[in-house]
Design a protein around this nucleic acid. Structure first.
Lengths: 207, 207
DNA sequence: AATCTCGGAGAACAGTTGTTAACTGCATGG
DNA sequence: CCATGCAGTTAACAACTGTTCTCCGAGATT
């Protein structure tokens, strides 16, 4: 199935990736809506017009970055949830996953946090779609657990959204935190997840 | 104490406000880091150089916008919390406050949501400081309630941060929601607050 | 009434931007 | 082996940017 790319298409993907990498790096200190096409091509060392061979405009590149940043997380997250039950173990593993991802892909995390509410509509939508997908997957996993017996479908999705939103918030908080405050942020995130988990256990108490 | 401004200073504040208003409007479709000085002055109908009489640069104007957007909310929020106990009544009132604020000041809300993680460091810090102040005030209020007996100080602040962050998230969600989906978002926010409140009540159960 | 202060205007500056058109050279498919 | 396709280049374009310096005129001060 994986027909080896010709040397031509290989080169194309290489410069395409170089454009994405350069853009991501430049975006650490500004927003997508202020990032210039020439700025990116200059950083890569390629003519400005070469940009058009790969992306229609900056918004298009932004959408590609969303894909790059979030697509790999789906399998990892679902696997993590499937392997753990609702409890201290899952909380620790979730926060550890976030910490690890922020450490290995800080620029991607910053990009998502920044452009989630940023000034480029297409990118906002792309991120929103991805996060909604995450929430749906988390909700599906929750639905299979015994703690969710008797739960409304809407309530489950609401709970899942809280988890996903909380993960994004935690990731962004880790970014801004000084390196020595990292563990403090992680500890706070674990306590917040514990609170939510506690609320989940007593959700059906008063009915 | 309120010595009537001379007609000179009055004019100055008037154009200053016009600059803020114009910037806020232009920011509905872009980020602060891409907003140009000339763009703003053009919208006001004033020479580009007049900008410097009021702000050092765009970041400076951004910080002023943060002040304008959030300063008025402090008293309102604290009064609301003081007037209600932890329960359904407070939840409804809180969400209603958010809905009302988003309806009356949509551009301000969008600005805060966008620039909270935006590309201009000074503005990010200003928003972060304001939100931390909110959290502290909420925590102080919580500390006076009977439900908080036996609570750690750190845990209280953690709970308060959840409330504040949740308010920002809800406000931003309301903005992006279609007008007819507004009530659905509000209902979801109430359920999430209910979950947190439930977690709060059982926080000390297992000790 | 004369002087000072200062918000705003005007013009000019060197750089920058996105986009167009026509080109070059090389991997590719017949 | 040759003709085609196409990633990337070069040059030029009008439009735009932030910032400086000089000036004006009307409110404020004495």
């Amino acid at each position: 199935m994986s027909h080896t790319l010709g040397i031509r298409q290989a080169q194309k993907q290489k410069t395409r990736q170089a454009l994405l990498d350069a853009a991501l790096q430049l975006l650490e200190e500004q927003s997508l809506s202020s990032l210039g096409l020439r700025e990116v091509t200059r950083a890569v060392g390629v003519a400005p017009t070469a940009f058009y061979r790969h992306f229609r405009d900056m918004a298009d590149l932004g959408v590609a970055l969303v894909e790059e940043a979030l697509s790999s997380l789906h399998t990892t997250l679902v696997a993590l949830l499937a392997a753990t039950g609702d409890g201290e173990e899952r909380i620790a593993a979730t926060v550890e996953l976030i910490v690890a991802y922020v450490r290995t892909h800080p620029a991607h995390v910053r990009f998502i946090a920044r452009e989630q509410h940023g000034g480029v509509q297409a990118v906002r939508s792309a991120i929103g779609d991805q996060l909604a997908l995450f929430a749906q997957e988390v909700a599906d996993q929750f639905a299979q657990e015994s703690e969710s017996a008797g739960w409304d479908e809407d309530d489950l999705l609401m709970l899942a959204r809280m988890y996903v939103d909380h993960m994004v918030m935690t990731a962004s908080a880790l970014l801004e935190a000084a390196p020595d405050a990292e563990e403090r942020v992680a500890a706070g995130a674990r306590r917040q997840l514990r609170l939510v988990s506690l609320g989940r256990r007593h959700w059906l108490d008063e009915r």
